[in-house]
Structures are given as C-alpha cells and as structure tokens.
Amino acid sequence: MAAVRWRGQSTRQAQLQRVAAYCLAPATIVFLLLIAYPLASVLWDAAHYVNLTNPSVSGFAGFDNFTNVLGDERFWPDFWHTGLWTLVSVAGEYALGLASAIALAQPSWGRGVSRAVILIPWVIPIVVAGLTWTWMLTPDYGILNLWLVKAGLLAKPFYWLGGLNTALMTVAVVNIWRSFPFYTVCLLAALMAIPKEMIESAAIDGAGPIRRFFHITMPSIRVVSLTIIFIHVIATAINFDFIWVMTQGGPLNASETLPILIYRFALEDFDVGAASALATMTIGFMLAVFFVYWYGTRSRRAEAV
C-alpha cells in the first residue's frame, strides 16, 4: 500500500515536472536564442582583449579589462550618477503612479478619458519625447522657460539641460513623466481588485482615510508595488535612450551613467573588452541589489509566519 502510494506520488511528481517543463519551454527557447548567446559573448569578451580598431591586441586578458574600467576616472562618478538617476526616477515614478492611480480609482466625471490621457506620455516614442522636451526646455526658444519667466517663477531663462547640477535631474523628470503611466495601470488594476466591503467595514470601525490607506490599501498593493519597483530599478539603471537623446551624458559627463559609459567604451573607444567588463560588473551590481531585496523580504516573510 505504502509502496503504491509512493509510486503514485512519484508519477504525479514526474508529471508535474513534465508540465512545468512544457510550460517553460517557449520562454527558455526565446532566452537561449536571443539572450544566452549575447550574454555569453559579453562574459567572454570581458575576459579578452577585443579592440575593433586595433587588431594587434587579442587573447586572454584575465582581469585587465576590469582593472582598466575601475581605473577610468569616469567610473565612480558614473556609478553614483546611475544610483542617483535610478533612485530619483523610480521614487518619482512610484509616487506619481500611486497618486494618479488613487485619483483614477475614485468615481469621477470623465474618468475614462483621464485614464486614457494619463497613458499618453507612455505611447510617445522615447526619442521623440526626448527631442520635444529638449526643445521645450531650451532657454532661448523653448516654451517652458518662456512661461516660467512670464509667470515670474524664473528671473531669466535657465538652461536646465546645460547645467552641471541640473542636467541629470532634468532628464530624470522627463523619464518620470514618460514612465509613471505604467505604474498607474498596474496599481490601478490592483486598487480596483480591493473589495469595496473591506474599505467600508473599516470605515464603519471608525478608520479615517489615512488609516484606511495604510492598513488596507497599501498591504493589498504591496506585491504589485514591489514587483514593478524592482523591475523598474533594473530597467532604469540600464536605461540608455533618454540620457543619450537629451544630453549624451553631458555637459562635462554630468549626466553620464554606466550604460552611457558602456556605449562610449564600445562605440567610441572601440574597446569591446572594457565595455563587456563594465556590463558584467553592472550585472553583478544588480544581482547584489536583487539578493539584498530577496533576503530582506525573506526574513520579513519568515517573521510574518
């Protein structure tokens, strides 16, 4: 009896494993086809001398590429720029996404239209959005500076993208503008899934709106929030387009982040080895962030149990 049961479990287990394998197969194929080879070539190049304009150097480089990258005077500033850019962008996106999702979850006149309008930044291609914002922000012939001056908020037009201290933050604001609608969609979906009765019964118990927000709303959207935040931290840290289109990392590298530096290594210095080493390090940093996040939430989960 016991043996039969054990066998039954085993076939059940084997069957489940098969089901899992079938379900994972398509994603695995796409991964192997399009990601595995590029990833492998990045790791391979990181350990080799690869220079497109200098065929005379080649062969195994050991950690040379890594030491070259770490020794580059732009590395640490760019590292901090990347962190700042990611932090400001994701925090701003989440704040705006949450605020807009809550506002859109309320019954209001013209809700459908506002929901569609808020998505508009997201459907404008990044290159076009970047160029348009750059133009609108220009001091001499941009409409935003003109209005800010007319409204008395600025004494004279300011070159937002040209200042050493403002360039990166200005691009971050535009990035927030463009990216927060995705948060809105996800958070709105999560908010709408909260049963009305839960909120009403809390209100009957005398919970005010702030209390209701922190005790019912936030816990209900926690999983979605953590997922989109985590995924956007990665996507923002490796984002290249916005900064490239708007400032190319300038002025004087003030808005240069690690992905821009990777681009410069690869397509300006033609040093594919250094570019790959930096990309490998970037992946390493992000895995470290992931493990911190993972173990942080795991110990919390364990406490909850």
Binding site: T138, D140, Y159, L161, G163, G250
Partner: peptide
C-alpha cells in the same frame, strides 16, 4: 555662457 553646453542645433 550657455554656449558651453550648446550643440550644433542650438
């Protein structure tokens, strides 16, 4: 002074 950050377009 903004010219320090101008590209060809500006």
């Amino acid at each position: 002074p903004d010219g320090a950050s101008w590209g060809w377009e500006e």
